[in-house]
Design a binder for these strands. Sequence first.
DNA 1: GTGGTCTAGACCACT
DNA 2: GTGGTCTAGACCACG
Lengths: 128, 128, 128, 128
Amino acid sequence: MNIDKYGRTPIYEQIIREIQKEIVSGILKPLDQLPSVRALAMEISINPNTIQKSYSELEHLGICYSSPGQGRFVSKNALEIIRGGKASALNDIQKLTEELLNCGFPLEEIVDCVRRTAENLKRRTDDK
Amino acid sequence: MNIDKYGRTPIYEQIIREIQKEIVSGILKPLDQLPSVRALAMEISINPNTIQKSYSELEHLGICYSSPGQGRFVSKNALEIIRGGKASALNDIQKLTEELLNCGFPLEEIVDCVRRTAENLKRRTDDK
Amino acid sequence: MNIDKYGRTPIYEQIIREIQKEIVSGILKPLDQLPSVRALAMEISINPNTIQKSYSELEHLGICYSSPGQGRFVSKNALEIIRGGKASALNDIQKLTEELLNCGFPLEEIVDCVRRTAENLKRRTDDK
Amino acid sequence: MNIDKYGRTPIYEQIIREIQKEIVSGILKPLDQLPSVRALAMEISINPNTIQKSYSELEHLGICYSSPGQGRFVSKNALEIIRGGKASALNDIQKLTEELLNCGFPLEEIVDCVRRTAENLKRRTDDK
DNA sequence: GTGGTCTAGACCACT
DNA sequence: GTGGTCTAGACCACG
C-alpha cells in the first residue's frame, strides 16, 4: 500500500483510495476479509486511529462491513458502490478542464493528456 | 465575485482563483490597481484579514505587488505566471483519469466529458 | 529565543530568523520536529497566529513542511535554502558600504569593522 | 534623483538619502537653497505630502532649516551631521556580517565584497 | 485613503 | 495533541 505520510491529502483518504483500488483491481474480492486495524497499522506504520477512521468511512459507504468478533469484510456489492462514488471524479475533471481552458490551454492538449494517461496505464497493466 | 463562504475550500483560495480568473479574462489588466483590502472585504462581506491573506499569496506568486500607502497592482507578467501555475492542473487530471479508468470507466467517456465541458464553456463565453 | 516585541522589525520576521539561526547552528537538524504553534506561542508569549505566519513563511521558503495532525518538520535541504537566501545580505552590505564611502569613511575602517565582528563572533562561539 | 516608487523602502526615506547624497557629493553645498516642496514633487512625480515629510525629517536632523517666506536651506554643518548619522550603518554591517558568518560564509568573501564595492565606486567616480 | 502587523478567541479537520 | 482558517477589532507606517 502506497501512502504519502507528508503530503496534503489526508492519510485516511489515501488509505480509503488504496483499499478501493485493491478491490477494483481484484486483489481484494467481495466477502474477503480486510486486515485488522492493528495489523494494517503495523504494516504501513500509521496510527491505528487513522486506520479506524478509514474503515469507518468505508463501512459508511457500504463498501465493507464488520461482524463483531470475526472481523471486517468486503461487501458483495462493493464494486458497484465504488464505481458509483467515482462519478464525482468526472465533475472534478470538468472543473479542472474549465480552469485550463480559461487560461488559454488548447483543448486538444488536455484531451491528449487524458489519452496518454490511458496508454501509460494500459502499458503498466500489461507489463504485470 | 462568487465566493462560497461555507464550502470546504478555504475562502482565501477561492478569492485567489477569482482574481486570477479576472486577470486571465482581461477584466483586470497588468498594472491595473486591485481593489483595496478594505473595499473588497466590504464588497464580498469577508473579513479584511482573509483578503489580506489572499493578496499576500498572490504577491508571493508574483501575480501582483503592493506599495504601502499607494495600493496593490497587477504584475506585468501576471498572465504568464498564472498560466505556468495552472500546469499542475494537468497533473490532477491525470490522477483522476487513472482513478476512473481503474474503475472500468471507458476512456471515451472521459474524453467526451472534457470535450463537452469545452463546448459548454465556449457557448457561455459566446453568449456574453 | 530572543524576540523584541516592541521593535521596528516585525515579530514574525524575528521568529523566522531565530529558527533559521537554530537550524544553521545545528540546534535544529533536518527532519527534526519544530515546536508546535501553540507551544512556541506559550514559550515566547506571542500570539499563535503570529507563530503560524512565521511558520507558513518558512514553509514557503521550503525550509520546513507540515503534515496536519502530525506536526511541522525541518526540510532535508533546509541548510542549503537558508544559505541561498542569505546571499542577498551581501547586496545589503554593498549598499551600506557605498553609503559610508560616499560620506568619506575610509575603506579600511569598514573592513576592520567586518574583521572585528568575525573575531567577536568566533570568541563567543569558542566560549560555549 | 533616483526613486523607486514600488520598492519596500519608503519613498520619503529614499528622498532623504538622495538629498544627503547630493550634499555629501557637493551638488548641494551648505547654505544652498533646496527645491521647494511643490517643485520637487513635480520634478520626481511624488505626492507633495511625501516631500514635506522628508524635509521635516531633514530639518529634525538639523541637516536643513527653513526660513518662512524665503525657502529651505542646507545647514552650515550639514556634512558633519550626515557623517555622524551614518555611523549606524556600521552597526547594520556588523549584523549582516554576523548573519553571513553564521551561515558558513567565509570571512574573506565578505571582505572581498566590501573591497570590490569600493573599487567600483571609485571607478564610477573617476569616470565622471 | 492605502497596506501590514498583531492580538484574542473561535472552530474545524487530521492523527 | 497537531496544523489551518476565519472573525473582530486594534494600531502603525506610508502617501
